[in-house]
Design a protein around this nucleic acid. Structure first.
Lengths: 182, 182
DNA sequence: TGTGTTTATGCAACGAATTGCATATTCTGA
DNA sequence: TCAGAATATGCAATTCGTTGCATAAACACA
């Protein structure tokens, strides 16, 4: 499982609380590996048991105390071991395809609506990526870590752009089918 | 959950045994909704309980008996209800991205190997899609069900093609980074 | 003064998915 | 003739993921 590694990778950048991690997953690494805050808290517990992170409570007046997690040398080692092994193909699960597979049994107007929604969602994602790219990745930072994040943003932008294109092509095709009177 | 619907959709084409379904998931609908045989058998049990499929055992001499599942009117109705509701965005989980996110902490040669493997896997998928397209979807069948399957094949081909392109672009970029001596 | 949002953490229950095992027979090739 | 693949089904255990709930305080706004 790569959730634990994704967390360790985040903690390599800087020590974080579970809350910080949840926000990071929402805003950057989570574009490529989704996780909810409950998953993150549970996984942090496991990482602590394995000795891959150290956790220390920091008292805050007023707000609840923060528990800040730091990656240990054993954790860094675990990241290295993981990164040297090839991962598995991401498993596809897309309801929209299944609906197309059953085109004869679905309501065509509803399907067109769903297609429109999906295109919108991908466009939202795309503009989010572009904003981040403009804000943080148009500069001159040449470090490896920065370069890696720049590259996945570029990949994400290409992925979303092509998705939008072929979803629009699919929309065109089913509209044509409808007009043909099937 | 759409696994149950994916199964029902398959059974709309023709009655099948669990084994047939597992093979169908391996060879066609599973390109867009992966499922193992254990998942399928368990789900078939649930569908039977709900009355969405009827199952009848067919004696076979020698081989173990086949249990053939047929969709019921209630099952067909369930497909309709499901298809009218918008699905959720497929959740992304790709280790390769996570490795790029941690570019400073991973072994670059290993990462390049993994990239090569992934490009190969997508190329394999692509040529599988193209073969199916040539064999079954280059003809004149104008039925809706046929058209839907043709469209998802086209979408799949576009998806894989663009994936291969940007994975190669990523390979080019990290090679460039390496040569720059970072 | 109250309502809602943000920060901050976590349990409990359930449902989904994976992994490993188990059985039993036919057919194919070495 | 013997090994192994393909056909055919399924249980059990574990892990992963989601949903709903719970707590607790600061702060912004109306």
């Amino acid at each position: 499982m790569a959730l634990s590694e994704a967390i360790l990778v985040c903690l390599t950048d800087r020590p974080m609380s579970g809350y910080d991690l949840a926000k990071t997953f929402d805003a950057s690494i989570g574009f490529f590996w989704r996780a909810s805050h409950q998953q993150i808290y549970r996984e942090l517990g496991k990482l602590r048991e394995k000795g891959f992170v150290k956790s220390q409570e920091i008292a805050q007046s007023g707000k609840p105390n923060r528990i800040v997690h730091t990656i240990t040398p054993a954790g860094a080692e675990a990241v290295k071991v993981w990164s040297s092994k090839p991962g598995r193909m991401p498993s596809v699960k897309d309801e929209l395809f299944v609906k197309f597979y059953a085109l004869g049994s679905v309501d065509m107007d509803a399907l067109k609506d769903h297609l429109t929604i999906r295109i919108d969602q991908h466009q939202t994602k795309l503009s989010k990526y572009r904003k981040i790219q403009d804000r943080y990745y148009s500069g001159e930072d040449q470090s490896l870590n920065h370069a890696g994040k720049r590259i996945i943003l570029e990949m994400g932008i290409k992925e979303e752009t092509s998705r939008i294109e072929w979803l629009q092509a699919a929309m065109f095709e089913i509209t044509k089918l409808e007009q043909a009177g099937n």
